[in-house]
Write a protein that binds this DNA or RNA. Structure first.
Lengths: 201, 201
DNA sequence: GTATCACGGTTCGGTGAATGAACTAACATG
DNA sequence: CATGTTAGTTCATTCACCGAACCGTGATAC
């Protein structure tokens, strides 16, 4: 395939990485997954991505071992997409790219602030905690809205959830006000979702 | 522009970064620039990229402040593209992506090895030198071919140059055997390039 | 028990970006 | 004067993205 995702002839791991992650939307899907987005409709509402493209990207990321497709309910069969350990390792490069953007592309100050959830201090480059000095894994990171974030932009569930502090990888609540911890995969049952999901953008 | 490089409505520095860097070929152009590629024909020979696309990408990167277009010769007017300080800051995210690829996408072992040029030790994640413990800037990094690199792949000048140890940002020699340091921008003069340039791929 | 809704897709026609080949401009070389 | 080099531009074709419509399954409302 000449056009498309491949970079034939490039004997280079960076090019191989881009073959997996470099297509339009792919890295935004991974970023959303890091923020706790797991369900098809949530990715779709948050990204405004055509369903066919989202479907293709999710399948490709599962194929590549970045995401895992996992059944969370049988009643109507429903799957969710969660990061594998390999996918979680993308935290470092993605944070580095985001921080580059915050430095050079955010005129009104950073849009998001990343903190070490357990001790509260801001994250320095490379996901290092300023206080602990440790390299903080994705699970211990908390995103908070920064001064550069416009608060009128989107009204989908994911955007609303990310407008207050949110632990990375913690599932997005099904409706606002629900405790993020309260979501059960074992009990199943068809959860009711708020009307807000349709009011996106 | 619905299709294309923009992610309208994403109020997120990561999405903004991808609007600058996320198009096909763009990050490979930046990677090549980090390896010392500066001239249109060298980018083109190494990447097998359509000239029209390369031209558009280079202009966009100049526009974004990642590359600087610099006249190195007047006789026939000739420009070269070099990384700005802002562009050089992309070293950390690009290395992180490359290292992710080396870990998960390189079946025969790493294709490239990154070393701290001044002390010789291999680079750990985040561009930290194992011996010095310092964070190594792009200028002090040396790429060397790794065990996973196929040596029959390409025969363009850039690929040949990168088949032996090469200091990052150091210009690719015009013909093999020439000292990389020997290239003068001030003296000008139309340098003769080897036949190898045309034997690409 | 029928109608409607939610979710997670697939299908399909239209559009625009990527591709590769050909062409151009400016100058140098033999 | 013919040819070559570098850095592009132009153009027809191809292919991926886009958005809207449709589909299947099961839950919920009436």
């Amino acid at each position: 395939m000449a056009l498309g995702k491949n970079y034939d002839g490039q004997d280079c791991s960076f090019a191989k990485t881009l073959e997996v992650l470099g297509e339009r939307w792919t890295l935004l899907v991974v970023r959303d997954a890091m923020c706790g987005v797991r369900r098809f409709a949530d990715f779709q509402a948050h990204l405004d991505i055509p369903k066919a493209v989202l479907s293709q990207r999710l399948s490709a990321l599962v194929e590549a071992g970045v995401l895992e497709r996992r059944r969370y309910q049988d009643a109507p069969p429903r799957d969710e997409y969660v990061l594998t350990p390999v996918g979680r390792e993308l935290w470092v490069p993605l944070l580095a790219l985001a921080q580059w953007g915050e430095r050079h592309l955010a005129a009104n100050g950073p849009r998001r602030l990343y903190h070490h959830a357990t001790c509260g201090s801001p994250l320095e480059p490379y996901s290092v905690c300023g206080t602990c000095g440790r390299s903080v894994p994705l699970e211990e990171v908390e995103v908070r809205p920064g001064p550069g974030l416009r608060d009128d932009a989107r009204t989908d569930l994911v955007s609303l959830a990310l407008r207050s502090p949110h632990r990375m990888l913690a599932p997005i609540p099904d409706k606002m006000g629900e405790t993020p911890e309260g979501r059960s995969h074992e009990l199943g049952g068809n959860r009711v979702r708020g009307r807000a999901a349709r009011a996106a953008r």
